[in-house]
Amino acid sequence: MEKEALFLKPVFQERIWGGTKLHDYFGYQIPTDKTGEDWAISAHPNGPSTVKNGTYQGETLDTLWKTHPELFGNPSEPVFPLLTKILDANTDLSVQVHPDDAYAKVHENGELGKTECWYIIDCAKDAEIVYGHSAESKEAFTEMVQNGEWDKLLRKVKIKPGDFYYVPSGTIHALGTGTLVLETQQSSDTTYRVYDYDRTDKDGNKRELHLEKAIDVTTIPHVDAKLDIQTEQRDHASITTFVSNSFFSVYKWEIAGKASFEKIAPYTLVSILDGKAELIIDGKAETIQKGDHFILPYAVTDWTIDGNVTAIVSTPPLHH
């Protein structure tokens, strides 16, 4: 097996709330000025990534998962479990909630549930997110939703660049205006909208809400996710572990100089948010820079990064 990183082409999705930051910040060639999402590392049928280098150039990630399972350590999961996105919330996203695996399996044709997390890349000075709600019972929640008492129901949190939020399934949430976020999530496209600010699309239609399902899956009362964020310094790298659980592990690598790594999972997803460096695998070097997304497959047991970069990195669950 070739020891090489799989670099991926972004898949852009237009959204009512999207903007131009994916171009302005990362230099991507975006299709329109309402580009809301870059599906950076995706094997989801609604937007699979394509490999742009090496042995598997032109192959999509979902196909590789099926035809070359050895690249991922011969996994048992039927679908690639993770999805990395960059979101440009030029205006407020709808207030939404996602189901867990068990509920999605029954109600969404076997789709995975959606637990996700956000790393705030950049945001406006007074940016906020919706994270959680104030209702103590399902009755109270339902009543506030039906009466449109959004200010009373929704919890707003001020954010700043570098913040990390864990958003398990069942959590009411929304990104606010002026936020650029890297999202690591289960590979799912199931969203239940609770409130959309009564917005209309270009044809004057409001977007569909999914209140019954949303009320079904929302965690009531809201529980704040407990995080144990740890940072370790080694060589010329600072490595922060944001979360490590049965869905994924997510890290931030801040590298200034030369840092060596050994794999801790069958494969590793890397998104370069800033800077430039050399990625050295098996004595071969290639340049990695801001806006690059790649997977280090199973055969890559160790690698070195030499330069100055900030990256968000994820792996499938580490079986403790």
Rank of each mutant, 00 (worst) to 15 (best):
L318I: 15
I255D: 08
I86Y: 04
I255R: 02
F164L: 11
G162D: 13
V130N: 10
L8Y: 11
L153E: 11
W17V: 06
N245W: 08
V130F: 13
K202N: 13
W17F: 10
I16N: 09
K85Q: 10
E208M: 08
H236D: 15
N53L: 03
I312C: 02
E143Y: 10
T171A: 04
D151E: 15
E143W: 01
L318Q: 14
K125W: 01
G73R: 06
G162E: 12
W65Q: 01
T177Y: 00
T191R: 04
H133E: 07
A140E: 15
K252E: 15
D306F: 02
T268N: 04
I121Q: 05
E14M: 00
L180C: 10
G19A: 06
H133D: 06
T142E: 14
T200D: 05
G132K: 02
L209R: 04
I281Y: 10
T191Y: 11
S271A: 12
L154N: 13
D122E: 15
D274Y: 13
V167K: 04
A89E: 07
S42L: 01
K206M: 12
A5I: 05
S42K: 02
I220V: 13
Y56P: 05
W39E: 08
I121V: 15
L318A: 11
A237I: 00
G47N: 05
A102G: 08
S42I: 04
Y25H: 13
E59I: 00
G176D: 12
I220Y: 00
D100L: 05
P99G: 05
H107N: 15
A214P: 10
L22C: 09
T240M: 06
T32D: 12
Y195C: 09
D302I: 00
I255M: 09
K160W: 11
L64Y: 06
E212R: 13
D101F: 06
V79P: 01
K9E: 15
S238E: 15
E14T: 14
K52F: 11
I220S: 01
T55S: 10
N308W: 00
D92I: 01
Q233T: 14
T184N: 12
P78G: 03
F242K: 01
I30A: 03
K66F: 00
I120P: 11
A40G: 15
G73Y: 09
P75T: 11
W39H: 04
T63L: 12
L209Q: 04
D235C: 03
T219G: 11
T191V: 09
W39C: 07
F141I: 03
I30C: 05
F7Q: 09
T50Q: 12
T20V: 13
T35P: 14
G73D: 12
D38Q: 05
D198R: 11
S134K: 11
H44E: 08
H320W: 09
D228W: 06
I220G: 00
S246Y: 12
